[in-house]
Computed example of a mutant assay.
Amino acid sequence: MELADYRREYLRGGLRRKDLPADPLALFETWMQQAIAAGLADPTAMVVATVDERGQPFQRIVLLKHLDERGFVFYTNLGSRKASQLSVNPRISLLFPWHSLERQVHVTGAVEKLTTVEVMKYFGSRPKDSQIGAWVSPQSSRISARGLLEAKFLEMKQKFASGEVPLPSFWGGFRVHFDSIEFWQGGANRLHDRFLYQRGDDGWTIDRLAP
Results as ranks from 00 to 15, higher is better:
204 W>R: 00
112 E>H: 06
81 R>H: 08
64 L>F: 07
111 V>T: 10
178 F>K: 02
60 R>P: 00
148 L>F: 07
37 A>H: 06
144 S>P: 00
87 S>Q: 13
74 F>S: 07
25 L>Q: 01
114 L>A: 08
1 M>H: 08
182 E>K: 05
143 I>F: 04
14 G>F: 06
148 L>H: 08
116 T>F: 05
171 W>C: 01
18 K>I: 10
32 M>V: 03
193 D>N: 10
75 Y>S: 06
94 L>K: 03
161 A>M: 15
82 K>T: 03
160 F>M: 04
177 H>S: 09
98 W>H: 03
56 Q>R: 10
105 V>E: 00
20 L>T: 01
2 E>W: 08
28 F>Y: 14
202 D>P: 00
109 G>E: 10
196 L>A: 00
17 R>G: 03
171 W>N: 02
22 A>H: 03
136 V>Y: 03
208 R>K: 15
195 F>K: 00
160 F>V: 08
76 T>R: 07
25 L>W: 02
157 K>F: 10
128 K>Y: 10
99 H>E: 15
60 R>D: 02
209 L>W: 13
91 R>S: 12
150 E>W: 12
73 V>L: 04
72 F>I: 07
88 V>K: 07
191 L>E: 13
16 R>W: 13
199 R>T: 02
8 R>L: 11
148 L>C: 03
84 S>M: 08
14 G>Q: 04
138 P>W: 01
207 D>W: 11
9 E>F: 06
139 Q>Y: 06
88 V>G: 02
26 A>G: 00
133 G>M: 12
175 R>L: 14
76 T>P: 00
91 R>F: 06
12 R>P: 00
22 A>K: 14
163 G>H: 12
191 L>D: 07
134 A>K: 05
70 R>I: 02
1 M>N: 06
169 S>R: 10
177 H>L: 09
102 E>H: 03
164 E>W: 02
93 S>G: 06
6 Y>P: 00
76 T>G: 00
176 V>W: 01
183 F>C: 05
200 G>N: 11
12 R>A: 09
117 V>S: 11
19 D>E: 15
112 E>F: 03
63 L>G: 01
83 A>C: 02
167 L>A: 09
33 Q>S: 14
51 V>A: 02
